[in-house]
Design a binder for these strands. Structure first.
Lengths: 214, 214
DNA sequence: TAGATTGTTAATCGATTAACAATC
DNA sequence: TAGATTGTTAATCGATTAACAATC
């Protein structure tokens, strides 16, 4: 019998659970029920129980799940218990937002360098992270043992840059461009398509019928 | 018989289709087949055909779908054929990234103002967009007829800020914080949880076994 | 014409939800 | 104890994929 496998929807919900459980833990609560977590996130309790079951942590009826063990197990499951040495490729606003967001650092994203083609940016620092020329990507990847790249370059440069990133030996790309990258399967790619979210919101909002003065 | 309804997965894929079809159209192609679109995005042709069917556009066997009509129909479906007057609330790097991204403007996101609490930012401009104090949110929402807010404040301020946004009369929030907002149902909220994407990538990458020198 | 592609109907697959005995 | 919550098994739901006749 193999390891229990979690579907992608489950994996995507785990970070929200982690946040709620962390808060409870910080407030000194030793247990939290699936019902409470579900209430906070407007999910069904059964869904939370099902999701949490993949961690292997067993809860106590009437009491809930032990917060400490659950935190540890979720972090382990997401591999957020190790640090991943990473680079931001494309040091624009989006790249700087990722560098400056402490949430990712807490979850093991250890950004060691940033790369850009803009001579005015090269040599500067963003929150202590040095911005380097793209020419130094391979050298720095080796030197710093980088394994992950946050790709925040303009779409027009995405494929070309991703190929350079892959050639440098990086094995995971968090892709914030809207370009479907063509790379060998040995590189893991996670596509963040912000336009998808905007599309969902737009459809949900529908057409506005402003209250006229007529 | 009612209007055909599209599931959220379909809606989320439409922007990618739009991009491919736009490229073909710009290259002067009058038709594009579902097979081609699927190939570009590494999807199944049947999935593309099924998704495109919600637009009501009919393709020609052997030829494909008419690019011009398809573009128009997808934009119509997503309501990307109208402009939505919007504000960025939280003028940090992420907010500035959204303001500076021309893709959203092309899809009708018309950012008219930015709001922040930082006195050093208030009064400045980001790509021509004025940064205003949060106190002026209600006034400006009325004056500019804003209907959408891009919420890019720190998590700690998310709920409070969202309430102010809702009170100002804005009816859609694109929420980039990791906070599940508690707001009346009259406000549409789209949650962008970046940590979810990072979780998926992390699980996919697994634990690294570096090639040792041993 | 021959055959690639469409649109529709049916089958499969996976995720969510329901039901309920076990239990703290 | 009584009853809220857990974990598991089964049912439902929705999305994806397969099959195939129609057709350009």
């Amino acid at each position: 019998m193999g390891k229990k496998i979690a579907g992608q929807p489950t994996i995507r919900r785990l970070p929200s659970y982690l946040k709620i459980i962390q808060q409870a833990h910080d407030e000194g609560q030793f247990f939290i029920s699936g019902t409470i977590i579900a209430g906070e996130l407007e999910l069904e309790p059964i869904q939370v129980r099902k999701d949490l079951s993949i961690t292997g942590i067993v809860g106590k009826p009437r009491i809930g799940y032990p917060t400490g063990e659950l935190l540890k197990a979720i972090r382990r499951f997401l591999h957020w218990d190790i640090t991943r040495r990473a680079a931001v490729v494309g040091a624009g606003h989006l790249g700087q937002a990722i560098i400056g967001n402490p949430e990712f650092a807490r979850h093991g994203l250890d950004i060691r360098a940033a790369f850009d083609t803009d001579p005015r940016k090269i040599g500067t620092r963003v929150k202590g992270v040095e911005v380097l020329s793209m020419e130094r990507l391979e050298e720095k990847t080796r030197e710093l043992a980088l394994e992950l790249a946050v790709l925040t370059v303009p779409s027009a440069a995405a494929q070309e840059t991703a190929e350079a990133v892959a050639a440098a030996g990086i094995r995971g790309i968090w892709n914030f461009t809207n370009v479907k990258l063509k790379l060998p399967d040995s590189v893991s790619v996670q596509q963040e398509n912000l336009a998808s979210g905007y599309a969902v919101l737009s459809v949900r909002m529908g057409y506005h019928r402003p209250r006229g003065r007529s």
